[in-house]
Write a protein that binds this DNA or RNA. Sequence first.
RNA 1: GACUUGCUAGCUCAGCUGGUAGAGCACAUCCCUUUUAAGGAUGGGGUCCAGGGUUCGAACCCCUGGCAAGUCACCA
Length: 599
Amino acid sequence: MKLALSPLEVKLNHYLCGQNLSPMSRVLSEQEQLRRESLQKLRKLGIDPYPADLFPVDHYSEEIKENYEEGKEVVLAGRLMSRRIMGKASFAELQDSKGKIQLYFNRDELCPGEDKTLYNDVFKKLLDIGDFIGVKGKQFKTQVGEISIQVEELTVLSKALKPLPIVKTDSEGKAHDAFTDPEQRYRQRYVDLVVNPKVKETFRTRTKVMNAMRDFFNQHDYLEVETPILQPIPGGAAARPFITHHNALNTELYLRIANELYLKRLIVGGFEGVYEFAKDFRNEGMDRTHNPEFTVMEIYVAYKDYHWMMDFTEKMLEDLTSKVLGSTEVEFQGEKINFKAPYAKVPILDSIKEHTGVDAAALSENELRAKCSELGLEVDETMGKAKLIDELFGEKCEHHYVQPTFIIDYPVEMSPLCKKHRDNPALTERFELLVNGKEIANAYSELNDPIDQLERFQDQLKLSEKGDDEAMFIDQDFVRALEYGMPPTSGMGIGIDRLVMFLTDNVSIQEVLFFPQMKPEKKVPEMTDEAKRALENISKRLSIIPNHEANLDQIKLNVIHDLDLSKKKWDKVKKELVKHGLIEIDASDRENIKIRIPE
RNA sequence: GACUUGCUAGCUCAGCUGGUAGAGCACAUCCCUUUUAAGGAUGGGGUCCAGGGUUCGAACCCCUGGCAAGUCACCA
């Protein structure tokens, strides 16, 4: 009976049982291994690479550059972003949340005594780009005039084990070797934020936009509220919802597609102005302007109509752009867009008449359908008049509106939650705000007639029976709320992501979302099953041979035969096992290449 | 969902007609006390997205799949 396993057997078991498949034992790159070694060396020197102590930062890089004071002592912290080591003196860049500043390390200033370890070993050898450090030192200007900090004290705050992409910017502001691969940038946004300062700026602007909007509403004394995301009936928009299940209630729930119906219930309840910044969820296609979850601001104000809301919206946008950007003029993809109020107002039917010559109001559904075909639109029998008008506008008119423009008075079938137009019952009191040919806001004089509302829901049901999978559900509780009475109200929704895209000159929604939705990254198995089986086979064969060593081609033929591998597969497996150090190939004798299992 | 393009070192990218996998930065070693994307010299580093096929031989050709981007369709 064997009492102990040989080291070879232990190693094999380890691999064959999948013990080495955990993420912790993945194969590390050379640079990752070196950083882990540096980590241990720091510990040996008595330096904690992840200290718990507060670090008393008293300045940002930005402040020092704006208010330079020769010789003034400052304490800064951030990431080490570059190093230029020149013997007893070195330069480095420190990046904090506001920007970068140059550090100057002089060996004898940093280490005035006999012991030069902090400079020679810690700074020069054991620190790497990406590490967080804290420094205390004096402000000064180099001979070339760059504001720098002469470092007198250096503290390791956090060691980085993975190397950052190195992005260098030259004197003309041109980035070299920029970290640009969209997949990596979105999946590892933390890295993107570290190395691409513009990205940080986009998200700062995003927050400023929301804050400015919130301030504007609060100044009007409207109340910020929160309403359910998990809803039994997904209402307020025409869209396919996500479905989920609540275990305790044993019921299906939907992730909200809009917050409209809940906010109107609050108006019924007696609030005069309510608004919400809401994440909505739609189970639809994804592209550069659609993410499955997105942010919308919706506001409802009692005793107002859509004319008032147009006024309010343009004032809000004027206020917001001038506060956030310092100007109402925005450059988007080379196009100058001016958010200064007032904006043009164009009835949708007038717009269609202007851009296509079609007088939709005067035509029957069939006549309109024929006209649309004539104009090259794809139409089918399920499309009602409203849908045809929508298509016509979307295809032929929308793109003309580059400057902010209100398109108003949509057909009633397109707007089941909107009050009928006071002068024409075929239309509704609705506007959409178009900017650069894209909708960014949508608003109504809200429908508050409960009987009309119920009929409109029933019309939606008919559409859904006709095959429209986006027709709205009937929300009986919402109708009941209206039966208690809702004051005349105007409501408006604005797509925050799209607005931020305009204000930051981004054409992709992913650029304004920290973590855009992506398919999960595939996991590469640490070792394939074939490799494990091949290793077992090889070791079985070698274990009965003296020196555990044999001719490679002989083993290859045997293994390919035993495991029914392709030659290509054998090659892969061989490389994999060599990489893991589980077999060794000795090619010193070209005539007789040997394979062995290392001790 | 369809089509197009891409996937090679930590990062950015070359790699011709199938013939031993390359550069710059980063990294390591040595030299250097105010440098400016990059100081000098030397060196190490690869699952060429995955799987299958063709071939004496595949990063490269063929098939299937994965992920991403772009265009279109749908939608806000």
